[in-house]
Design a protein around this nucleic acid. Structure first.
Length: 108
DNA sequence: CTCGTGACTCCCG
DNA sequence: TCGGGAGCCACGA
């Protein structure tokens, strides 16, 4: 278990219901701005080993990167079931669904 | 170390 | 909205 992986898990677990975070944002909070790809990779691996709310993580465009049949419907359904707002059916409302990152950077 | 891969991100047309 | 190119970091072989 790498410190980066551990941090990512910590952050992702901090995401409350009805809220979401971006891969890049999580990477930044973990102290690795630019490692957005790893965040995704870690979620992919850890989601099966740890009980992580991976569905609360999306790309910087406010959309689901997972392709249909690869988890897209899963994340979409989970987010919607938690109260996350979707625009045009795919776009998430960062205006109200984006998690308050200040509560993380201030805790560190 | 080197090579290949990935649920990313920004830029340009 | 979609496609191509470049940069970033971490993991596995």
């Amino acid at each position: 278990m790498k410190p980066f992986t551990q941090d990512v898990i910590r952050i992702v677990q901090q995401i409350p219901e009805g809220k979401v975070l971006t891969y890049g944002l999580v990477a930044v909070l973990a102290g690795h701005p630019g490692a957005a790809r790893q965040v995704a990779g870690i979620l992919h691996v850890m989601s099966g080993k740890h009980r992580l709310p991976w569905h609360r993580v999306i790309n910087a465009r406010g959309r689901i990167s997972l392709p249909s049949g690869r988890g897209y419907e899963e994340q979409k359904a989970l987010l919607v079931s938690e109260g996350v707002v979707f625009h045009t059916g795919d776009q998430v409302d960062f205006d109200s669904c984006l998690m308050d990152t200040d509560c993380l950077v201030s805790r560190g």
